[in-house]
């Protein structure tokens, strides 16, 4: 493993620790849905995205939308470790007057780009943001991370039609396919699968991804980002993964990331009781021992 991947994995572990601490101190939150996206978030914030935490409104920054807003402790942790907010502020999650509201809103939290929490809205907002970036002529990218459960929402498929229509190759979508939504398995709750064929049918270029393999995530997302900033001519024949023919130059990309709800903390992994639950003192202690890293100071 290269030093870079080791560094990113260490950061991912730190963010997992921060999420557990954040939810433990707040006494409320959704730990399971956070854990499945941590590796992807780490890759985005600490490797792939072009950001300047000293200038959160920098025009040329890449944008990130957490469409599954209930996993915001993970986003807040990434923002804290990236330098947008003080890690100690994570303890104020969900408190009266906190900048870290129960679900994100881009009012006064630096680094939060869009409102989310009512599910299904990341792609549409990202669509507007990507159109605006095109109009400005900026080569910045819009990353949208959705849950799999939230693909039940009709508005997702409305946006799934509009984004390819506008050839928004500067928007990169990622599905956190952890297989479990609030009420149970995604294939039991509604008829979600097959996912690949659905998105392909709407005109997207679909890439499968191991959402917990840092090397694979960074490699694929870096290529997608490079393509997203490229001209149409340059995009011609640009490969994303070696086992798949390259996307057509105007196709937007969506990653289907296989993930595990609760990943990284054995007692949470695949156990949907942790969709929304606060660790007890003992559970908190166990998590701290597994994870290592810094506390919220």
């Amino acid at each position: 493993m290269t030093e870079r991947i080791t560094r990113l994995n260490t950061m991912a572990t730190q963010l997992r620790r921060d999420v557990v601490n954040c939810i433990y101190h707040a006494g409320d939150g959704h730990p399971g849905p956070c854990m499945s996206i941590i590796d992807i978030l780490t890759a985005l914030y600490f490797d792939v995205m072009r950001l300047d935490s000293n200038d959160p409104k920098w025009n040329k920054r890449d944008r990130f939308i957490l469409s599954k807003g209930h996993a915001c402790p993970a986003l807040y942790a990434a923002l804290a470790r990236k330098g947008y907010i003080n890690p100690a502020e994570l303890k104020t999650l969900r408190a009266l007057g906190s900048r870290l509201q129960g679900h994100p809103v881009p009012k006064d939290t630096p680094g939060v780009e869009a409102t989310s929490g009512s599910l299904g809205h990341g792609l549409s907002q990202g669509c507007g943001m990507a159109i605006a970036a095109r109009r400005r002529g900026d080569d910045c990218l819009v990353f949208v991370l959705t849950g799999d459960g939230e693909l039940n929402e009709g508005i997702i498929w409305e946006a799934a039609m509009t984004i390819p229509k506008y050839k928004l190759t500067n928007l990169i979508a990622i599905i956190d396919n952890n297989g479990i939504q609030s009420g149970g398995k995604v294939d039991v709750i509604s008829n979600l699968y097959p996912l690949r064929e659905k998105w392909e049918g709407f005109g997207w270029y679909v890439v499968d991804l191991d959402g917990h393999n840092m090397k694979e995530i960074t490699l694929a997302l870096e290529k997608a980002a490079k393509r997203g900033r490229a001209s149409r001519e340059e995009r011609e024949g640009m490969e994303i993964v070696s086992n798949q023919a390259p996307p057509l130059p105007d196709q937007p990309i969506i990653f289907i990331a296989s993930t595990i709800k609760g990943k990284g903390i054995p007692y949470m992994e695949g156990n949907n009781a942790w969709h929304k639950r606060v660790p007890t003192d003992e559970e908190h202690q166990i998590a701290m021992e597994i994870l290592g890293g810094l506390d919220l100071e």
Binding site: P106, E113, A114, T115, H121, S124, Q125, G126, C127, G128, M129, A130, I131, A132, A133, R136, G154, I155, E158, A159, M161, T162
Partner: peptide, 18 residues
Amino acid sequence: VGIAEQNAAATSAGLAIE
């Protein structure tokens, strides 16, 4: 955006964010 008012509203939000 086609006959998709929810998408139109949320896309408008995205434009306004920018």
